[in-house]
């Protein structure tokens, strides 16, 4: 770190003369907090785009309590959160699934729970798919909706998540699939992109975060979630632990954290942020018993 900071000084110096005019708008550092605790510095979070909007809102509330702290939230997917936490460019990683056994070098701090729902266009008459049918559709063995009970005579458009996304990992693990086996027509990144792909194509099947899907259905978009093992996906069935395809949203750290980062981790797991978690359509961790088939 020492070496990097000297290089930073040097490189800053060389470009400083060009920047003088631009830095004029920088605000002076704020006066010390009147409270007893004087936390200061930057906390950098990177990773899951599912967690990022929630982390930003948590960060803003944390900054209100500790005016000398800045919480910087970056995005890019869970894999990036893991990589950045390991190489030190982030203090805290955001990962929207549980850690795998080979990721034992990192510590997970659970902040909320979320589920993944299979979504169809609301015009699609199919009311339920068995797990076997979902596997067959994603492996490309079922290609027509007419092969499914109640389905229309049209081809199935399979929408899959991009590599490195936790939603993909959780989905694959639940259905015991490999990504290489999947025959997808569309590969998507973030949740809202998945919803837009399905609402724009009556023949599409996809899977997204329940919170995002509930939000869209609430706004009257042509979308429906399919029940899984007879349980319909909603934040209520997530909360009582009956919906099987659930995941934990985690903040991860490596080794001992700085006091500021530690304080933020505690804050993010405290009841003070419960309303923010619900606002982003997730389920707070205290009230969510662990689902039986948690990945």
């Amino acid at each position: 770190m020492k070496k990097i900071s000297t290089i930073r000084q040097y490189s800053l110096g060389t470009v400083a003369f060009l920047m003088l005019g631009l830095t004029a708008c920088a605000k002076p550092p704020q006066a010390a907090n009147s409270e007893g605790i004087k936390l200061q510095g930057n906390i950098v979070l990177t990773g899951s785009s599912t967690v990022a909007p929630l982390a930003i809102e948590m960060g803003k509330r944390f900054e209100e309590q500790h005016p000398q702290v800045r919480v910087d939230v970056q995005t890019g997917g869970s894999s990036r959160g893991l990589a950045d936490t390991r190489n030190g460019s982030a203090d805290i990683g955001m990962v929207s699934r549980s850690l795998k056994p080979e990721e034992g070098d990192l510590t997970a701090h659970a902040i909320a729970r979320d589920g993944i729902a299979i979504i169809l266009h609301s015009e699609n008459p199919v009311a339920e798919l068995s797990p076997e049918q979902v596997v067959d559709i994603y492996q490309g063995q079922l290609t027509q909706w007419s092969d499914v009970a109640g389905g229309p005579t049209s081809p199935i458009t399979v929408v899959n998540k991009a590599e490195g996304r936790s939603t993909l990992d959780v989905f694959l693990k639940h259905f015991d699939l490999k990504n290489s086996e999947i025959q997808a027509q569309v590969i998507i990144g973030d949740n809202e992109q998945g919803i837009k792909t399905v609402t724009g194509n009556p023949n599409a099947i996809g899977y997204v975060s329940i919170g995002a899907a509930e939000h869209s259905i609430g706004r009257g978009e042509p979308l429906k979630m399919l029940p899984l093992d007879g349980v319909s996906p909603s934040t209520t069935t997530l909360q009582d632990g009956t919906f099987p395809l659930a995941r934990t949203l985690n903040l991860v750290t490596q080794g001992a954290s700085e006091p500021t980062a530690q304080a933020f981790l505690q804050f993010a797991q405290s009841p003070q942020v419960q309303d923010l978690i619900e606002q982003q359509n997730f389920v707070p961790i205290e009230s969510a018993p662990l689902a039986p088939s948690t990945p």
Binding site: M19, L22, A26, I56, K60, R70, D72, Q74, G76
Partner: peptide, 18 residues
């Protein structure tokens, strides 16, 4: 920009802020 200037939706205090 997503991997360089970043995603932070706050007023920057200086050019070193995201």
């Amino acid at each position: 920009l997503i991997f360089t200037s970043g995603y932070v939706d706050r007023f920057p205090r200086s050019l070193m802020d995201s």
